[in-house]
Simulated assay, not measured.
Amino acid sequence: MPVLPGAEPYHHEGGDVGVLLCHGFTGSPQSMRPWAEHLAAAGLTVSLPRLPGHGTTWQEMSRTRWEDWYAEVDKAFADLRGRCAEAFVMGLSMGGSLALRLAEVHGDAVQGVVVVNPSVVGDTPLLRLAPVVKWVVPSIPGVAGDIKKTGVAELGYTRTPVRAAATLPRLWKLVQADIHKVTQPVLVFHSRDDHVVKPASTAFLRARMGQNLEIRELTDSYHVATLDNDAPVIFEGSLDFIRSHASVPLTKDL
């Protein structure tokens, strides 16, 4: 299946500190590319994979499930850890949920986590009904493109494959059940105005996590904040986070 131009994965070989970036549901690496390039320019080794079924057609995505998306980031994380002394994981929306799951599963192998408008709670009625709706309709209107900044577009599907969406509740339940295992430093960027993920996800993390959690509010962006007005805040904030928590130099000695 041909990949849409701009939706290709991105990799950069840098120093001994690595970063894995996870894009969101029905989105593509395009929504994370500027962030990835910013981290790469700072000397980091960066991995931004394309999740199965994403960046092609929603019909292809309909044949995938959350286990496929997690398997892809898990594989990318293993590769990153094999090349770097330390690794951080970061994600947008559902990608934030995948990043937190990696931290739950891999423990101290994950040095820290940064998530932007993470989706960890099923607070959208239509998605909660997806396991039933999938037998009635193949797709519903898409959720991509929630951006405040004029002239900026997200490369994502205009339709949401219901069969794929129906697998999300299982991912959310696992992340919720094991969130106590995340003892690494976690930084959450939360858009005050988000038309895709409701405040319940950030509220859940605030209620269930300890002093290792920091939440920063974004005041001038919608859901896809990595492409929005507050993107520089995210890029610099995540880089400062890495500098604060990495125990080895970010760049290789020349």
Results as ranks from 00 to 15, higher is better:
V152T: 15
L44S: 12
I147L: 05
M209T: 07
Q59G: 05
A246R: 03
K149D: 10
G24K: 12
G237T: 12
A225V: 09
I234D: 06
A76T: 03
D240I: 11
P118C: 13
C84E: 00
F204H: 07
A76L: 08
P125Y: 13
L174M: 14
T124G: 02
V233K: 07
L254D: 07
G55A: 08
V137L: 10
T251W: 02
I147V: 14
P2C: 01
L254G: 13
G6K: 08
L227E: 02
N117G: 12
L254H: 09
H195K: 13
L205K: 13
V89S: 11
N229F: 09
A71F: 11
P141V: 06
A144T: 14
V121R: 04
R65I: 11
V121Y: 14
R243D: 01
V188N: 07
D230E: 03
V115D: 09
I140N: 09
H190D: 14
A166T: 02
Q211R: 15
G14E: 02
G156N: 11
H12C: 08
M32H: 10
T183C: 15
A207P: 13
L44E: 15
T150H: 15
H38Y: 15
A7T: 10
L168F: 11
R101V: 08
G27W: 07
K148L: 08
T64A: 13
V133K: 08
A76P: 12
D74P: 07
G210Q: 04
T57R: 03
H245N: 08
W58A: 10
P9K: 04
T160K: 02
S139C: 09
V197W: 12
L39V: 05
L4N: 11
P2M: 00
L21I: 14
G96I: 09
H180Y: 00
Y70V: 09
D108V: 02
L100R: 00
R101Y: 06
A225M: 06
S238F: 14
L80V: 05
S47W: 13
P138V: 06
G27L: 11
T56E: 08
S97R: 04
H245D: 11
D228C: 03
A177I: 01
V113P: 06
S221K: 03
L48G: 05
I242P: 12
D193W: 10
H195S: 10
A246S: 12
V132A: 03
S191N: 11
E104A: 01
T124P: 05
E13D: 14
F189L: 12
Y10Q: 03
H12I: 03
R206C: 08
V136Y: 02
P199S: 02
A164W: 04
D178F: 05
D193N: 13
H106C: 03
V115K: 10
V162H: 02
W58V: 00
K198S: 01
W66S: 06
W35D: 14
Y222A: 01
L44H: 09
